[in-house]
Amino acid sequence: MSLGIVIVSHVPEIALGVQRLVEQVAKDVSVTIAGGTDEQQVGTSMAKIMKAFDQNTADEILAFYDLGSAKMNLEMAIEMSEKTVHLYDTALIESAYTAASLLQAAVPLTDVEAQLAPLKIK
């Protein structure tokens, strides 16, 4: 079973930036993103999140987001997706980076989650 990462941000450039950052330490981890609304405005889009789930080549996904409404759209996308998605209320950049580093090192999910726990901020 493979684990991948999905980044959801209100701003397309933030999502792209976090992806660029974490891919530096996780070249073999599938990292897909959903940034901004369908019109590339500030906000989030359930359709974009669904697409990020679909495009991710992993069987199971760890999802990270920036602000509250991103979480609501994520939860709706999770309800509709067939993939297993784990959602974390953690600091976006730090936790995505932590997870990416650990997944690259093939650390199991329970140990990744233990490292993410202190990063919970919301």
Partner: peptide, 15 residues
Amino acid sequence: LISKVGGASGPLYGT
């Protein structure tokens, strides 16, 4: 509403 609103109101009113 879910696909067009963008902010928190989309998922909330949509739900």
